[in-house]
Design a protein around this nucleic acid. Structure first.
Length: 267
DNA sequence: ATGGTTGAGCGTCAA
């Protein structure tokens, strides 16, 4: 069977729910993982996924900030035993077991803290939180050695490779591409995963999923970063059939500053 | 070096 998993930082689900039909038309995903839904669970727009053909839904949200959701055509079971990262209760992770042929696929949807502006843990508690979050996630996956049939997606808010940013040199001291962040993210990845998008695109090629709102012409300036990721456990690399970074989404009316990223597996 | 824009929800904070 074919399994397509998409991830998108939607930057307010209620505001941009109408754009999901464009995402579905372009990518035809079986599962959609969202971040920054910015909606408390009690106000989750429950009819939206059903009307789009995604009747299986999980969400973890709060007022104003953060929030993740998984919309699926495939039935799943929610893993309720995931950690409360950094003991903040801030709705940055959902894990489900997808009911796929050949056994369940464990799917993680993460929204890693952005980390504020100053890349110094003493001056900036948000940066410390970001590094702590990545370290805790690293430890948690490291303790689950031998993990197989797992997919991890999300807005990880770190561009780990030199060509994951428009200028490696100019961003080395900018939050999202500093050495402690990139080393931390790669350590996390190396606990159990391979980078499913770089499986298709060589590391020497520029690859971005986010362009700031603060550029008049995002495409012309092209000062992007690859903050959104899809990882798979090594046993699934042979099943990877294609990837899609839907850059055109950055031109949708009133869109997110992130674009959807999608990977297809043939299981 | 600085400023640039957007969302939530009405103060600013977060990104």
């Amino acid at each position: 069977m074919k399994l397509r998993v998409a991830t998108w930082n939607i930057n307010s689900l209620r505001l941009r729910a109408p754009l999901l039909k464009h995402l579905i038309a372009a990518l035809d995903p079986d599962v959609i993982c969202l971040q920054e839904t910015k909606v408390p669970d009690a106000l989750f727009p429950a009819t939206v996924p059903v009307e789009l053909g995604y009747p299986h839904v999980a969400f973890r949200g709060m007022k104003g900030y953060n929030g993740v959701a998984i919309l699926s055509r495939i039935p799943f079971e929610v893993d309720d035993a995931t950690p409360d990262w950094c003991a903040k209760g801030d709705c940055r992770h959902l894990a489900v077991l997808l009911d796929t042929k050949g056994g369940p696929i464990e799917l993680h949807d993460f929204y890693v803290p952005a980390g504020g502006d100053v890349p110094d843990t003493r001056e900036n508690p948000k940066f410390a939180h970001k590094l702590d979050f990545v370290a805790q996630a690293t430890d948690w996956f490291a303790a689950r050695s031998g993990l197989t049939r797992a997919v991890l997606v999300g807005d990880l808010n770190i561009a780990p490779l030199e060509h994951d940013v428009w200028s490696h040199k100019q961003l080395l001291n900018v939050v999202s591409h500093t050495p402690p962040e990139t080393a931390g993210l790669l350590a996390w990845q190396n606990t159990a995963f391979v980078d499913a998008v770089r499986h298709f695109v060589p590391p020497g090629e520029k690859l971005f999923t986010w362009w700031s709102y603060r550029n008049r012409d995002w495409r012309a300036s092209d000062r992007g970063r690859r903050l959104d990721h899809v990882w798979v456990t090594p046993d699934l690399t042979g099943a990877l059939t294609r990837h899609l970074i839907h850059k055109d989404a950055r031109d949708w009316p009133q869109t997110s500053d992130h674009v959807p990223v999608c990977v297809e597996l043939s299981l």
